[in-house]
C-alpha cells in the first residue's frame, strides 16, 4: 500500500514540478478548441448540429486525457533511460504493485490535465448543461485515464528505447484520437467508419463526457461506463503482465 502511494505521489510531484511542460501541453488542445471550434463553427451550425464549440469541448478534454495518460505510461522509457526504473524493479515489492502505483499516478496526472483543459474550455465560452453533472464528467475522465495509462504502460514496457515512439504515435495514438468521435458526431457515419469507432475505447470516454456535460449520448451512459471499466481492466492487466516481463 505504501509502495503504491509513494510511486503515485512521485508521478504527481514530477507533474507539478514541470510547469513549462504543463503550459506547453495546453497548446494543442487550445488549437483544436479555438481553430476548429471557431473555424468549423459556422459550417457545423448551418448543418443543424448546434454550436461546434459546445460539441468539440468534451472531445478536446478526452484528447487531453488520452495523450497525457498514454505519455505517462511511455514515460517508463525515460525511467529506463535515466536508470530510475532499476531502483523500482529490484525493490522487494511485487512488480504488479509497482506498476499499479505508477500507472495510477499517470492516470491522476491525466485527470488533472483534463481538468485544466475543462477550465480552459469554460473560459473559451463552453457551457455545460448543468453543474450537477460535473462529477459524472470526472468519472469519465478517470476511467478514460486509467484505460490509456494501462495501455501506455503496456507499450512502454514493450519498447526498448524511444525509436518505436513515433510508430506508436502515428499508428496507435493518433488513430485512437481521430476515430473516437472527438471531432465529429457518431450518427450517420459510413458503415466502416462507424464500425471502427465502436472498437475505439476513447469513443466511449468522449461519449460519456458529452452525456455528462451536454446531456446527449450516443451509446448511453451505462454502456459507456461498462465498456470503459472492461477495457480498463484488460489494459491494466496487460500493462501489469508486460511490466512484469521487463528485463534490463
Amino acid at each position: 500500500m505504501g509502495a503504491v502511494y509513494i510511486l503515485w505521489l512521485r508521478e504527481l510531484k514530477r507533474y507539478v514540478r514541470s510547469r513549462v511542460q504543463i503550459l506547453a501541453s495546453l497548446g494543442q488542445p487550445l488549437l483544436y478548441l479555438l481553430v476548429l471550434g471557431f473555424g468549423l463553427g459556422p459550417v457545423f451550425q448551418q448543418s443543424g448540429n448546434g454550436s461546434y464549440l459546445q460539441f468539440i469541448a468534451p472531445g478536446v478534454i478526452g484528447m487531453t486525457v488520452l495523450f497525457t495518460s498514454i505519455f505517462s505510461g511511455i514515460g517508463l522509457l525515460w525511467d529506463r533511460q535515466f536508470g530510475f526504473l532499476k531502483e523500482t524493479l529490484v525493490a522487494p515489492v511485487p512488480r504488479t504493485t509497482i506498476m499499479i502505483g505508477r500507472t495510477l499516478g499517470g492516470a491522476t496526472v491525466a485527470m488533472l490535465q483534463g481538468t485544466l483543459v475543462l477550465a480552459v474550455c469554460l473560459i473559451a465560452g463552453f457551457r455545460p448543461v448543468s453543474l450537477a453533472s460535473i462529477p459524472l464528467a470526472f468519472l469519465f475522465m478517470a476511467l478514460t485515464a486509467v484505460v490509456f495509462a494501462g495501455l501506455g504502460t503496456a507499450i512502454g514496457s514493450a519498447l526498448q528505447d524511444m525509436q518505436g515512439f513515433q510508430l506508436v504515435m502515428n499508428f496507435l495514438v493518433m488513430p485512437i484520437f481521430f476515430l473516437s468521435g472527438a471531432l465529429f458526431p457518431l450518427t450517420n457515419l459510413p458503415k466502416v467508419l462507424g464500425a471502427v469507432t465502436k472498437l475505439d475505447p476513447l469513443s466511449y470516454g468522449v461519449d460519456g463526457l458529452r452525456s455528462a456535460l451536454l446531456g446527449v449520448s450516443h451509446y448511453g451512459v451505462a454502456v459507456d461506463i461498462l465498456v470503459l471499466c472492461v477495457t480498463a481492466t484488460i489494459f491494466m492487466a496487460l500493462g501489469g503482465y508486460m511490466f512484469s516481463k521487463i528485463q534490463l
Binding site: R10, K13, G83, F84, E87, P92
Partner: peptide
C-alpha cells in the same frame, strides 16, 4: 549506472527507497 530520480530531491529519493523497502 545512475538510478536516481532527478526531479525528486535527495531526501525524497531516500524516502521513496525507504518506503519501497
Amino acid at each position: 549506472d545512475p538510478s536516481l530520480d532527478g526531479e525528486l530531491t535527495a531526501y525524497e529519493n531516500m524516502e521513496l527507497h525507504g518506503v519501497l523497502y
